[in-house]
Design a protein around this nucleic acid. Structure first.
Lengths: 219, 219
DNA sequence: TTCTATTTTTAGATTAGACTAAAAATTATA
DNA sequence: TATAATTTTTAGTCTAATCTAAAAATAGAA
């Protein structure tokens, strides 16, 4: 149906549209895909011809309904496979991204229907990211970055913004995973660093950590 | 490590070496891959440079130890995924080949180690074909084609030579699957057709069917 | 053994996707 | 508003993998 390269572009644009609302620039796509802007121009012209996105020269792109559907489906597959790898094959959450990058391109509707059922139709992947449903609809969740919550508030970790092995391994070392309760004991306004409580431990985290952890605050 | 095209060539050559002992001709490869002989020549020259096979112009090719290892590993992955699809996702044995053709190219040693363990280290795929071990060694089995066995002998179906959906669906209709006991009641020398007994049913099968079914005869 | 048929290889073209370098358009600044 | 800086596009090149058409080598038949 679509080539590997096309699917990867659509996926990247989909993510960028969510991160920054509105049109997505050529440069932003190039950066997120670690490729050159000229290559991006080539590809978005091809995707525009296929009506997967709208494109006006120098004005960036926007996915069409069809483009969004294709992208969401790739993301659905990626996240379902991540659940499979963690739940069934006992991979650790920092090991699954690269493998899922490959598995997300396997073409078979039936496979995904059955995989989803086999996994019990999960709603979130191992990093806490929501899995689009079969129509490409993403469930909205009201999560905040840990960096946005105030002193003395507490929240439950529900996901990570970045999911590099390095970051995930840091979280493991600190015994933070999805479901972990975190209380903010102190917050430094100068650099955004925090003292937090996790279980019985209290420790310092930098702003960089706090702005990559999603929490849900509880009333 | 290797491209999709390279892996597919190695796999095809590996199968051809087993089917007909000795060197494999350019034409044979082209036919089995549904491509042109000139394309095959290009690719085998590249594979020869990478020392995956030995090649002398006009003389056909032979896989090196390294080439065999790579090919067997692709086949191992294909067959393990087929077991997964049938055993875990309840696919039918005639639906899994095409999907496994894609899954066999997923690159991750760890994935295959874990998948194998998850499946209980199976020795055969759903069509009765042996799964190469992690070193690329194929277990030898003494199976015969049904067409080779004599009147009044009986055997257990242990595999199929061809595994097209059409053939597998024919077998289903006749209630033949792996493990089914078959007795040859009659054999026509003119066209190789047979009357066989399967369970309480007796029926006619053509030579074409008989030469695509593997059985193990029992003493 | 010589000629013919077949098989295999070479040469040259094509396509997808990427790249570099340079041109064009847009945005920011003085 | 003119100029500088930045972003984006175009033009042309490259590689992997394929193809067609033609040439070369091998095998088979008289």
């Amino acid at each position: 149906m679509f080539t590997l390269a096309e699917e990867n572009y659509l996926k990247a644009i989909f993510h960028l549209e969510h991160e920054f609302q509105g049109e997505v620039s050529t440069n932003a796509i190039a950066e997120s895909m670690e490729t050159k802007p000229s290559s991006v121009t080539d590809m978005i012209q091809k995707l525009a011809e296929k009506k997967l996105l709208t494109y006006k020269r120098y004005k960036g792109v926007q996915l069409t309904a069809e483009g969004k559907k294709v992208a969401a489906n790739v993301i659905r597959k990626h996240r379902l496979w991540e659940v499979f790898l963690v739940e069934k094959l006992s991979f650790h959450w920092d090991q699954v991204h690269e493998i899922a990058e490959q598995l997300e391109h396997i073409q078979s509707e039936e496979l995904i229907i059955r995989l989803d059922k086999f996994l019990g139709s999960p709603e979130f992947d191992p990093h806490g990211d929501p899995i689009p449903d079969k129509h490409g609809v993403l469930k909205r969740t009201e999560k905040k970055l840990l960096s946005e919550i105030d002193k003395n508030q507490k929240g439950v970790c529900v996901g990570v913004k970045e999911s590099s092995p390095e970051f995930l391994q840091y979280l493991d070392k600190k015994k933070i995973s999805i479901g972990t309760k975190i209380r903010v004991l102190g917050k430094e306004f100068f650099d955004g660093s925090m003292i937090i409580q996790v279980g019985s431990e209290q420790f310092f985290i930098s702003h960089k950590i706090a702005e990559n952890l999603y929490v849900q605050t509880q009333e």
